[in-house]
Each structure stands twice: as structure tokens, then as C-alpha cells.
Design a binder for these strands. Sequence first.
DNA 1: CATATTAATTCAAAAATTTTGAAGTAAATC
DNA 2: GATTTACTTCAAAATTTTTGAATTAATATG
Lengths: 297, 297
Amino acid sequence: MISLELIRLLRHIRNAGTLSQAAAQSGKAASALTYQVDKYEDSLGITLLQPHGRTIRLTEAAMHICEMGADILNSVDSLEAQALAIGTGVEPRIRLAVDTWVSTDAVMSVISDFLAEYPQVELQIEHQALQGTWDALTTQRVDLIVGAIAPKPAGSGVQTLPLGKTERVLAISPDHYLAKRGALLTDEDLEAARWVVIKDSSSMSPKRDLLPTTPQSVILVDSLEAKLAAQIQGLGIGFLPPQVAKSMVLKGQLVEIKLDSRPPDIEMLLAWRTDSRGQGLIRLIDMFSTADLLPQH
Amino acid sequence: MISLELIRLLRHIRNAGTLSQAAAQSGKAASALTYQVDKYEDSLGITLLQPHGRTIRLTEAAMHICEMGADILNSVDSLEAQALAIGTGVEPRIRLAVDTWVSTDAVMSVISDFLAEYPQVELQIEHQALQGTWDALTTQRVDLIVGAIAPKPAGSGVQTLPLGKTERVLAISPDHYLAKRGALLTDEDLEAARWVVIKDSSSMSPKRDLLPTTPQSVILVDSLEAKLAAQIQGLGIGFLPPQVAKSMVLKGQLVEIKLDSRPPDIEMLLAWRTDSRGQGLIRLIDMFSTADLLPQH
DNA sequence: CATATTAATTCAAAAATTTTGAAGTAAATC
DNA sequence: GATTTACTTCAAAATTTTTGAATTAATATG
């Protein structure tokens, strides 16, 4: 009895706020929506909309359908793209999740080359941090991750290729008190300092921690840009990709700090679902894997 | 453009084999199905059915929709049950996956008590082995696992309660050559013997191995009943739940073998999805967790 | 406090979609 | 070569959905 139409209808009403606005936005009469909702209420035997003053409210059950239905709509979108890819050979759309740690310029350059070959493919790009990229892939919100952080989650129908390892440079504002020290910093120094950390965009992640210590004070940001800005302001210390750190060091906005124990490099991956079938994705994976996304200094 | 209706339609045609049989089974004219398929072919821009002799075949794209669509249909069923549970308080159906290792009698006894309280709830029971129970839960094919084997998969929106630990008894046919030895069996003896092993019903599992050694020869069976029969026949050796082994030992059909290193006990769990909301499931969990499913000898 | 306005519902008529069943075509079987 | 089976096409019939005017009720305005 629940259909994709019902999920879309309820989400649309929820987003619009009122029935009449939802009707106006979808170019229909308000009574058409009342009719549809009544039909589903009858067939399911539960109430979906309740009067609330002179407007309506979604019931708890309807809200649940909206929330859980989002995943279903994503899966259907994904299935449709796969079917089109099989039927026509080339998929109409590829969705990328790019880790914020990866240079956007390098990604854009690959995309530009790709679109020259496949102009009919629509590319959707979103940025995710850490575990969030894997989340987006396993829930089928995206088709390809650029810069996923190893290791890949177990047994999830995902294939990967290495993009290379990247060093992490501890860079801080020249005005920061730790920048004025002469000696190498110890773990105690790092633990006592305030860190600027990119927040994991995964909703429920088994807390992956890439820091050498567990700092007492952190500022969470949602992108590399925000992290850089925070560190330049001297709000805290943190690791940066070498190429980003270098250019800021040259401008005098940051200074690089040497540690007595060098943090391990991060291994970044290209990752996609084994059930992806389109020619375009195959070509895009090829292009990304031969591009130099993580320049070795 | 893909709808649940299309997924159901294609699966129905695939199962029926021919359009006319599909039409007859669904109580419609064959031309109605032609019309629907044409409509979807036009809107998607791909071919779904191809003539093959005087019948039709599903194209590769259509087969893909059938296969991947199965998960979507399960999710929608599940979502509907959840919505009904929220709307009415009691869900119309609860799907159980029972590990083959768990005593069916004990499960049935709990179910019987449950149905006395909630006669309107339809219970669906299936047996799964090992990782297969987790698969069934995470893909929303079932609502509750009885006898899942710890640990639960990471970060998957699943809640668990311990059912207890169960010992494993190495029991073999009295005619088996190892039964005639006097001494305790060593790892080498175990490795050289043929084992009867319950096949993991998970389609893609990160191969969980509960054996103390990697035997050279195994017979795979799909249930505890088949395993027991195979061991009684002397086809191989294997672990059994203590209560099962005991009763067969009393009948003289098996003998228990002591090992020099006792295998670790298996910890079994009750597991369900955090997003489950029905009163019935809550009561059923309560009943299972207080029942004595794994009798301590 | 009466009046205007906004939002949802009801209902009959109109529009759109889906189904039917008869006629036609092509492949397999007798 | 005739017959049967399976699908397609097409116009008519049935069903479903949408519309828009009338109605009810809650909030805002003068």
C-alpha cells in the first residue's frame, strides 16, 4: 500500500508546510492532495495528517515514512541509474563524494577532462569528511568516493583502488604560543593545545580518530577551508595536507612545526560499488586513478 | 520513473515466464501488461522486454531491476509495518530469523505464549546460519534474530540482548575411526578428519570461522538437522549443542569426544533494529530474553 | 466584536489513465 | 499446411484522478 508516490507526497507536504502551498508548488488543486492522502489513509488504516489550527500536521507515522522513505527514494534513484547504464551503456548521472582533505582543484581538473569525453553525463559533487564518505557510498547516496580513508568497511560490495598516501603537516599560526617554542613538540604539548578538527560527516560512525593524542579541547569544523581559516586565526593547531600547508607557509600565514614522532601517513582510496555498471563511471575511475591527486612533495 | 509497481510487474512476468501466464495469474488481460511495460519503456527510454521466439524475455536491464528491486520491496514492506506499528501501536507482522543452532522447540514454546497475548500479529519464521542472521536483519528481511552469534556488526542501528553462552560438544558416530581412540584428540587429529559444517547462509560474509582448526575436508549442510543426520551416518565429525548431543549419546547414535583444548563457548544474542517501534516486538523480546533458550547442562 | 482572510474539505463534473476484448501477426507444433 | 500459442494493436469501456466551486473553521484585521 505504501508507494514511492506516498513517500514523495508526504515529504513534499512536510517541506511545503501547508497543503495549499504543497498544491501550488506541484501545480495541482489542493483537493487533489486531500484526495490522495485520504486514499492512503484508508488503505493503510492509519492517520497521516491531523488538523492543527487551520493547517495540518503530519502524524508521527507520516513523519516516520518521510524519514525512512528517504533511503528508499535514494535506492530507487540509484537503481534507475543502473538500469539506464545497462540499457544505454552510459549512465545519465554520476554522484561523487569528495573527501574535504582532497584538493578541489585537482578533482575539478579530472572532471573537466571527463566531461569533454562524456558531455551527456550529469555530475553531482558533494564533500564529506572521513567516515561520511563511506556512509554516502553504502547508503547509495553517491556512486564514487574520491579520497576515502582506508580501510574500507568489511563485506559491503565495494571496490577500491589506492590513490596514494598523503603526509600530514602540523601547521599553526605564527602568533600561536607553540610557534614560539624552539624545541620539538612532545605528546604532552599536543595534548594540552586546542585542536582544530574536521568533524566526521557520518551520522553514526564507529568514531575514527586520526589524531596522535586525545586533545582536551577541540574546535570542530566541517571542511578543510574552515579548518584552514581557523588555524590561520590562531584558534588552534591541526594537521593539513602538505600542499595546502606549504602555500600558507610561503605567504607567512602559517608556520610548520616538527614533531618528535612523525604521524603516520593517511592512505586514500578511490571507492565505488561493485554493482555499478556504467561506462562513464569506469572511465572516471580510470581518470582519477591515473591523475596525481595527492602530489608528493 | 521506476516505481514499485514496475519492480513488482517485472518480477511477476519473470516468475510467470510468459506475459499471458502473468496476466492470467494477476487476473488481467494480457494487453494491460503490454500497455504498462510500454509505458515504462517510453518513460525510461530503455527496452525492458524483448521478443524471443513467440514469447518474451526480460532484457539485462529488466533483470537487474528485478534483482536489485527485491531489497527495495523488502524495505518498503518493512517501512509499512513500522508505520502501522506507530499508527496502531501493534505491528501486523513480525519476521523472525532463528539460528539453526537454537532449539526449535524452545522457540516455538515462546511463540505460542506470545500468540496467546497477541493473536492478531502474524509471525514469519525462517532459519538462517551464522552471519546469515545478521544479513537478514540489516537488509530488513526480518525484524528479530534469535540466536545471533556475537559480536554484532559495527554501527548498524542494531540493539542486542544476551541469550546466554552455549557450550559445544564434539560428537561423532560410534563407528567413526576417531571414536575408537583411547587418548584425547589433538589439533592434528581434528585437522586430518572430515568435518560436517553448517554453511553460512550469508551471501557475502566476511567468512566467520568457528572451528578450532582449518580442516582439510568439509561437508557443508544447511541446518542443524542435516548436520546431525550427517554425523550420525559417520560422514564426519562436528560440534553440536550440548542438549542435542546428549540425547543422541543416550540413544547410542553418537559418542562424545573430549578434546585436550576445550573450544570457547559461543555467545548468542537476541538482536533487533533500533528503528523497530511495535508493542508486539517489545513484548516478544522480553519473552525471549527471559525464556531459557540455551539450557545449561 | 464584526469582518476579512487563509486553509482545508466536500462534492459533482471533467479529464486522464488504465483495462478490456476483439482483431491481427508471427512463431512453434501437429 | 493447418492449428495452436503468444504477443501486439486499437477503439471502447471502466476506473481513477483532478478540478473548481461551495462550505466550514480558525486566525488576523480594522
